[in-house]
Design a protein around this nucleic acid. Structure first.
Lengths: 223, 223, 223, 223
DNA sequence: AATGAATGAGTGTTCATTCAT
DNA sequence: AATGAATGAACACTCATTCAT
């Protein structure tokens, strides 16, 4: 935007105007940082490595993000926005209550399974007592809407006689997350202490089934 | 001169039967390391700080444990042994099946609540793909016995008609751990994204109740 | 490009034709390292000291050379290249065979005398079984040419009737080096065990004369 | 000797009385130190390793030798005494002058070949500017006698018409040492820069022959 | 906008040496 | 005579960050 006039002088580059490069660099850095923080944690991640993997240089990281910690904050915010964006696409409002909850359980499980970095990032954030998220209004808003949506499903389910009354949507949410999160984030120690390859396809399927059972028994009205 | 005859003159020290200095030093290092690794993770922990807090010195750490990584392994093994030792004291076999399971849920919750370091240590171990636990036969054995005990409770419960048949003790175990673990290890980000102080006493009580509900609905036979 | 105009405005800097800072730093580190390794050996040299003496810092050393050992390799390669470059300037081919050999003996002696570091470096390299030179093709090539040159002199001398036939140029070379090297590298213990100040000017002159005698008697054809 | 009374109380151990243990420990430490200093140099040697290899402990080293540096001094003195003792067994006085010198050349070569540690030790001593030998009267005396012996041979050779007059025994000695020492101490770099396996049996034989030629041509009277 | 060069403050680890028995 | 325990100082190497262009 601030280089708009420059593009007029260089029509050749119009298709990829200068302003885009900046955005692209920023995105590449963010992607590389997400990977690096996800793999090594905040403490273990190396600014140098992030620069290398984003085909940029350390100076650009400081130019765009200010510091390693601020970059971590940006990564966290993006991560929460991403998962919320994916959730929104589920269109849970269009489903029956039971199917909506089941879909949410499946989605949560699959998202964690496909984005193990997300789990590591959250772990790292908590190791640092969520210091990097304290100031982030974005995350608060984005997640608040999500809880409201789950509350709406529970209310609908109760009204239709499928669910029990009075289930706390926050507690339910936490439990849905917990039963997937714990299994997957602790997949390495878990495979050792339970002497079972937790990541074997059969075991993954079995776990999802178990989790569905757990949540559905938890919410449904006893006949 | 100052200790040989001294024991006779000072029977007080008899109660600590010549607690070999070496052992004491080793224990102090292990305790300090557990605290430091628990607070900062493996990467963030400082060997120097562990030395200072154990009122020892860096050289002793390397003398007794060989390296920071081996020290971390020792800390992990001790942590798993400790939780298992505490579990054994519950005497679950002496309780009715439902009460046994409820006791286990309460114990797990309270142990995590009182030993937040344990959660961090497990997180750290998984960040490093459980590399430090790979060779540890101790942990494997200790946890294997635990699963057997839970299986016995489930079998008893099924036989007595209190529980459903065919519940996988490993899945149940994981779920009991998960619903406490996730809430507590993510208490910082959780308090932000759910906009609720997860550590407020009332909320802690409510969570435990919710967890009991979750597990009991999961195991009990429908009438 | 960005310094083109600058040089015109500052002709003073023309004599140092924009010696890129990087290159200069690299050279200063190499010089300081040569001094430090020469004085203390590989094991005794301190990276910190090399940084200080090169008016640089440790980080730069690792940036340019990778490790202390790789820096040592670079120092060794430079040392061999330097002595060979000096030898080439002698233009031995332009001299008669006897004078050429005498010149080589004098040169070798004087080079060792003026570059005691070279001796220490070679000693250090051998203490480490030449591990640092194993991969160096440069040294191999550079010294190979040197042996060829000596061989040419010996052939010429034999053809002209001044030298004996069949003298192995490698053996001769080793001996020319040896009689200077041993005296100078062991000047400290030598001065004690032979109870004579080996570095006193008179003794140095006398040694050179003795060495010339040794080599000339060795090569010349008996009448 | 000072524990003589102790042996009377324990006649069983008479054959290896207690006093011997102290001596034995001392000797084992010295042997291990010679090996370690020879292999790694003064700076690279580890007191811990010397303790281990002498099947003793670090404290004993300090008990018997005071410090690492004093131990190095002891090792050096022993090394010079050993080579001198071996030289004395040659009985050079009983041989004709030429054969005496040839024998000395052969002995020097073989001793260096069989005791590469000796070469490393001398190198180390010189790296430290012979600081460890400065106070050693023993070495001075022992080596002084050696030079005298060589001088006697040269005088005898001159008187008998076999040798030239006026050869400096110190210079000759140095040269005899040098032509073996350089070849062997620099066997690793030498094998690279001369592109020849200097330690191959054939090459070793050839070198000894070359050295004999060198020295005999140097001393003998021209006809 | 982009980048190579530079740096101070650490980081895990090792070492020779002394203490206490 | 012999030894296990303990230590302060140093070491090679790394890191996030800033300078200068």
């Amino acid at each position: 935007m601030n280089t708009a006039s420059a593009t007029e002088l260089a029509p050749i580059r119009k298709s990829t105007p200068r302003a885009r490069d900046a955005d692209l660099t920023r995105k590449r850095i963010l992607a590389a940082a997400t990977a690096e923080f996800g793999r090594k944690g905040l403490g273990g991640a190396r600014v140098d490595e992030i620069a290398r993997r984003s085909r940029s240089n350390q100076r650009m990281i400081y130019h765009y993000f200010g510091s390693k910690e601020l970059l971590f904050t940006a990564v966290l915010e993006a991560a929460y926005s991403d998962i919320r964006a994916a959730e929104q696409k589920l269109n849970l409002d269009a489903l029956g209550p039971t199917e909506a909850i089941a879909t949410l359980v499946r989605f949560t499980w699959n998202y964690y399974l496909e984005h193990p970095k997300f789990l590591s990032l959250v772990n790292s954030a908590n190791l640092h007592r969520a210091r990097h998220l304290k100031g982030s209004q974005t995350v608060r808003e984005v997640m608040g809407k999500f809880v409201q949506m789950v509350k709406a499903i529970l209310d609908r389910g109760a009204a239709m006689g499928e669910f029990r009354e009075g289930i706390d949507p926050v507690q339910l949410n936490i439990t849905i997350a917990a039963i997937g999160y714990y299994y997957l984030t602790n997949r390495f120690t878990g495979s050792i202490i339970y002497d079972r390859d937790l990541m074997a396809p059969d075991n993954l399927d079995q776990r999802l089934a178990f989790n569905l059972e757990t949540i559905l028994r938890l919410v449904r009205r006893e006949s």
